[in-house]
């Protein structure tokens, strides 16, 4: 078990270096970003001065090694556009995105299980049909489109939900203001509903279908039939036997889910003016703000890797067949 964890951690370090190298090279081949940091009327001399000041005059490998060297000291560099530590900018934006993905993840998993189970139990019925139709639709609608439609319908027409904005929950919580954080929770959730659904709807649809098909598979297996034939009540059969096995594939999905949800995050954060990492990194890429992009990419990979490690460990606990 421990050797497994240690091996995975070592692999993770290689992965993170790979990730930084890719983004570093990618941003560099895009050309010299100096022009973005001088005024419209800057002279050639001023441009050169800025280039030197920003360090873009040095060879690529030298810049990369400097960057890695600083990274090992925990220094992610200073943001070129915000003129402050890149890590600070990223950590400030991260909680909002975690709130968003967490909400979307919970929404996509917690709701998917009953939907999938009922669809499987009443296979072929109208209930199954409508759940699966919703599932199919959910997998065909781009998140930006869903977001704008929700703004128009729930925000502008019905006025049930706020159109845009964000109320922090994680930040006060992490600062230790537990009471304040929880008193803000209802408000935070109120603001989270629309962007969260926009991010998570695709996954909800996919997960519901996944649960349904794996439930169908389990229901057809011998141990369920045996349990039924023993006269165990149907509800107990489903909860104790079928469900326990049916949601394994969903657990496997959770690890990959995070990376997947991030795909919707950039677009949804733009639409709902959510102050998260998606917008930060999109602007940073456009501004060629290399330290911020690097810090974002590293933070997100670390989260992704640890989440997957966690999922593997959980998997061992809930599925006795798997051994590390």
């Amino acid at each position: 078990m421990w050797t497994f964890i240690i091996r995975r951690l070592l692999q993770s370090i290689i992965v993170i270096f790979g990730v930084t190298a890719i983004s570093f090279v990618a941003l560099q081949i895009g050309g010299d970003p100096t022009y973005l940091y001088v005024s419209e009327r800057a002279t050639a001399e001023e441009i050169q001065q800025t280039r030197v000041a920003l360090g873009f005059d040095r060879p690529l490998y030298e810049q990369y090694f400097t960057f890695i060297g600083n990274l090992l000291h925990g220094d992610f560099g200073t943001s070129l556009s915000y003129k402050r530590p890149a890590l600070e900018a990223v950590l400030e934006a991260l909680p909002a995105t975690i709130e968003l993905t967490l909400f979307a993840m919970i929404f996509a998993i917690v709701l998917a299980i009953p939907l999938g189970v009922f669809a499987a139990l009443y296979r072929g019925s109208a209930l199954d049909g409508s759940i699966m139709t919703m599932g199919m639709l959910g997998q065909s609608i781009p998140s930006f489109w869903l977001g704008i439609m929700m703004i128009m319908f729930f925000g502008l027409y019905l006025r049930w939900l706020p159109i845009s904005g964000h109320v922090p929950f994680l930040v006060p919580l992490l600062q230790g203001h537990v009471v304040e954080a929880f008193s803000q929770l209802p408000m935070a959730l109120y603001y989270l509903v629309m962007p969260g659904v926009a991010v998570g709807f695709y996954s909800l649809s996919r997960n519901a279908r996944l649960v349904r098909s794996s439930m169908l598979e389990v229901l057809g297996q011998d141990f369920v039939r045996t349990a039924r034939s023993k006269g165990i009540p149907e509800a107990a059969v489903i909860i104790h036997h079928a469900l326990r096995n049916a949601w394994l594939p969903v657990v496997t999905m959770v690890g990959l889910e995070f990376g997947f949800l991030l795909g919707g995050v950039v677009v949804v954060e733009m639409i709902f003016s959510w102050p998260g990492i998606g917008r930060l990194v999109f602007n940073a890429i456009n501004q060629r703000d290399i330290p911020v992009v690097q810090a974002c990419v590293i933070m997100l990979s670390v989260i992704f890797i640890s989440l997957n490690l966690l999922v593997d460990l959980i998997y061992v606990r809930i599925d006795p067949r798997v051994k590390l």
Binding site: I148, I151, M152, G155, L156, R159, P162, I163, S164, G165, M270, I271, F272, S273, P275, R279
Partner: peptide, 18 residues
């Protein structure tokens, strides 16, 4: 000063009176 990058969202917030 609220930061609202998407034009449609800005318009919606204005129409909603926020």
């Amino acid at each position: 000063w609220r930061i609202i990058p998407e034009a449609s969202t800005r318009t919606a917030e204005l129409i909603a009176g926020n």
